[in-house]
Design a protein around this nucleic acid. Sequence first.
DNA 1: TTTATTAAGGATAAATTTGTCCGATTTATC
DNA 2: GATAAATCGGACAAATTTATCCTTAATAAA
Lengths: 143, 143
Amino acid sequence: MFSKACEYGIKAMIYIAQAGEGGRLVSLKEIAAEIQSPVAFTAKILQLLSREGILLSTKGAFGGFQLAAAADKINLAEIVKAIDGDRVFNGCGLGLKECNALKPCPVHFKFAAFREQLADMLQTTNLHELAAGLKKGVSFLYR
Amino acid sequence: MFSKACEYGIKAMIYIAQAGEGGRLVSLKEIAAEIQSPVAFTAKILQLLSREGILLSTKGAFGGFQLAAAADKINLAEIVKAIDGDRVFNGCGLGLKECNALKPCPVHFKFAAFREQLADMLQTTNLHELAAGLKKGVSFLYR
DNA sequence: TTTATTAAGGATAAATTTGTCCGATTTATC
DNA sequence: GATAAATCGGACAAATTTATCCTTAATAAA
């Protein structure tokens, strides 16, 4: 569904939303430990998210990352788009370059409905609610 | 969503359903040309589908492939499972090894509904209907 | 000012997926 | 029996994704 990079990216953002409340900066080391991801690879992903403007980074001692907006203003779609592009939202189910209602692949209309549901879900799910579940201990970032 | 191998596999099966009516054997060469896929790679995928029992292969001159069952008895879920395994059906959206209602990842329940819809769609979509669209010229396998 | 800590970023390596090549085998036809 | 057409299957190569290493730059604190 998503690339590994995107999975790490989503987990990192959820963790930062949960751990970075009150403007506290969260370090790469802490993030990678909490989401059980390879440190250097995670660094690349956080760099990307920073360049994309949905994360803020601060260098130097006691530096780290924080969300670029309130957690309830950042949705999953933004993160997925930043890392995996819009393949998830627009890409053809059978990989055709051009696939649309006028010249559809055989599964085009079967997929359309469901792709729309996915897009809607990603757009309406924000980091605040996901972080809340984590905080309450009803959801988990590893295992 | 699906691997490239799986995309080719689905396209190949749809094409065979359409071109192999009346028990006609369809050759690898023809299939690869029609779905615009690399011949040798497609061969591997068809071999796999044959081993999985959803395709029948015949060696030798005038040999080729045919569906192992009536087109309306083969659904997309079988093909996807044969090639990509059940990752699509069971895998966690964030890549966790263990992710279930008892120990869910943060997006588990958000994904569950939609994954179910996907599984349902794949299970209820059969090759016959997809091939029909192709035959009528309302859907396409390349571009 | 020195030191420790932290992110940035380039180069490289490992793993996986995708794709190619080629000889062996099977089968129909001449 | 020889030949041509077709799949099988193993080895290899290329491309992409995932992961690592190392140097540089920035910042806070001692």
